[in-house]
Simulated scan of single mutants.
Amino acid sequence: MITRLNYITLLIVFVFLISLIQGIKRGLSKSAFQLSQVIQDIIINITAVIITWKITNWLSPKLQNWMILKSIQIPSEELNVLEKGYYIVLTSIRDFTFIRFILIFLVIYLLIQFLIMLLFNLVFLNLIRTMKMMNGRKQSKSEIPLFISQLFGGFIGVIFGLAKGLIVILFLFIFVTLFPQTPFTSYIQSSTLYQSGTEKVLQPISQNFIETTLPVLAKEAEDEYNEVLQRKYEIIDHNIPDNIVEATHVIVKDLNTDEEKAKALYDWVGTRVQYNWEKVRLYEEEKVWMEQTPEDTFLTKQGVCIDYSRLYAVMARTAGLDVKVVTGLGYDGRGGMGAHAWNEVYLSETNEWIPLDTTWVSSGGNWFNSNDFYETHIKDA
């Protein structure tokens, strides 16, 4: 019988029973006080969210316009770690709507919540003290029969239990919405209490907002997070050494289109740089990572996938191309997938981003915008 029980249902029941037992043990006065505190917190938080939402919607585009007008430029000289982090954060706030909105919202929300709570305590707590003084002596707990106190405390505990149970169902509902294909999702949906909570309470209240909007927001957040990862390499490798600049100009000197330049650099990096198996061995066996710059890769002509990709990126940018360093998984030749990095470059002639993998040039095959490229490459998500 135990193996047939749905543990999601048991979890919801357990949360409800804990609140009921707590209500009975606390009695009327303590439970009522806790309820009043919860109601106060709900009022403060809802008010803070509404005010913050309106301020953020108004402020976010204005902040972006101001940052664009300030023309934030990444210095050409070598940056230290703190400076690199500063420009990654600053340019991400300027360029990515979702990230900017969330950061502004969090800062303003904390400030508004503090101010509302301060005002609430100053006004309402003084009012409560005045009312207590007018009512005279506070009724003692002994004047309320224990059974009545426990009964009403249990009733308040039921209210808390239902609310907490719905919160549990809400988090499960969000998980199911974001990850609909997992085995755990099917298990959650098999719970009768979960089904009742979503069908009779959450869906009517939200009017399918969570199901329709949350996945879209999650996708936007994921896309912008990946763009921030890309921005990291743009900042780190912003300072391009003269020797790489000179070599790039020689390679693309007589070429006109973005595709010709991108293909020439793909061939040059892929055939000049040799894969550094010793670097891989040190990392896998001794957990030692040999960090290297694009200039290190250019001079030594050795590196692993991330080194190929970063070198290609700085050369492509030197040639006037828009380029990304993409991380994810790549086919390992043994039936599995392993950590990998490659590039995407923008072709203005066709108005599209195309993938290319300079690391795999030496292994044969066409890895410059091949039709089956993403059969062997999976982007981070």
Rank of each mutant, 00 (worst) to 15 (best):
I159H: 01
F209C: 00
K54Q: 15
T182D: 07
K84E: 15
V250R: 13
F373L: 08
L170C: 02
S348P: 00
Y225K: 11
T318C: 08
E222L: 11
V252Y: 02
Q203F: 05
T297V: 10
L151Y: 03
L229S: 05
I167V: 12
V326H: 00
R137H: 12
D258E: 06
I43W: 01
K62T: 11
T182F: 10
A341P: 05
V252Q: 04
L115T: 12
V168I: 11
A264D: 03
I24V: 14
Y283E: 11
D332E: 07
Y233D: 11
A319M: 10
L202Y: 09
C305R: 06
N57I: 10
G161H: 05
W268T: 05
V345E: 00
A264T: 00
L106F: 13
D254S: 12
I43P: 03
R137V: 12
I42T: 12
F120N: 13
L299I: 15
F373S: 08
R26A: 09
I108A: 04
L79F: 07
I39H: 00
V228L: 13
S309P: 10
N343I: 04
Y194K: 06
G365N: 01
A32C: 08
S186H: 10
V89Q: 00
K70Y: 12
F114N: 11
L255C: 06
W66A: 11
L59A: 14
L178E: 03
L265V: 06
I72R: 01
I12D: 02
I93C: 03
L321P: 07
F105C: 02
T318M: 07
L229G: 05
E78L: 13
P145E: 08
H249T: 06
L151C: 03
L265P: 02
D95R: 09
E246P: 00
I167W: 09
L20Q: 01
T271H: 14
E143F: 12
F209G: 00
E246Q: 15
R4G: 06
F105Y: 13
Y346G: 03
M67E: 01
A341E: 04
N121A: 06
D357I: 01
E83V: 04
Q139H: 07
D95L: 10
V107Y: 07
L299F: 02
D372M: 04
N351Y: 03
K287H: 14
